[in-house]
Amino acid sequence: MQVYCTDGTVFRCRSFEVAEYGVHLYGTPPDADEERYAGDPEQVGFVPHDRLWYVLPEGVISAAIQPAQPQPAAAPETQPQRPQPPTARNR
């Protein structure tokens, strides 16, 4: 499966499971201790729901997949300018 995130990150996993706060991703990467995960898939990642764009099966390619561009940081709020006291020039 291919996992597409909203920031444009794409990676692979073998299976996934939807949880309360996101999606758990499972795979079987090489592991030195082969008995460690005997029979159980190894969790290889987690993506929060608000960062997940798509999870597609291997071999499916969508031309419509164009993750949203990250939103620019909000500009810091500026203090409102105080009116200047009258001077000889602006009277």
Rank of each mutant, 00 (worst) to 15 (best):
R91P: 00
I65M: 00
Q2E: 05
E42M: 15
V10A: 09
A75K: 08
E17Q: 14
I65K: 00
A75D: 07
T87V: 06
L52S: 07
E35A: 12
F16D: 10
Y54E: 11
Q71V: 15
P80D: 05
V60S: 07
N90V: 13
T9P: 00
A64E: 15
E42V: 14
E58C: 02
P67M: 00
C13L: 06
A73E: 11
E34S: 14
G39F: 13
P30R: 07
D50C: 03
P80F: 03
P48V: 11
A88W: 08
H49V: 02
R89M: 08
A64F: 09
R12P: 03
R82E: 15
Y4S: 03
E42F: 06
Y37S: 02
P80E: 07
P86N: 06
Q79V: 15
C5R: 15
A38E: 14
V10Q: 08
Y37M: 02
D33K: 09
W53P: 00
P29C: 10
G22T: 05
I65V: 14
V10H: 04
A75F: 03
L25C: 14
V23Q: 05
P30H: 07
E42P: 02
P41I: 02
H49E: 02
Q66A: 09
E35Q: 12
G45P: 02
W53V: 00
A73I: 05
A74C: 01
G39E: 09
D7F: 03
L25G: 03
W53L: 04
Q66H: 13
G8V: 05
D31Y: 02
P67K: 00
Q79P: 07
V18D: 12
A68K: 08
A32I: 14
D50M: 08
G45D: 03
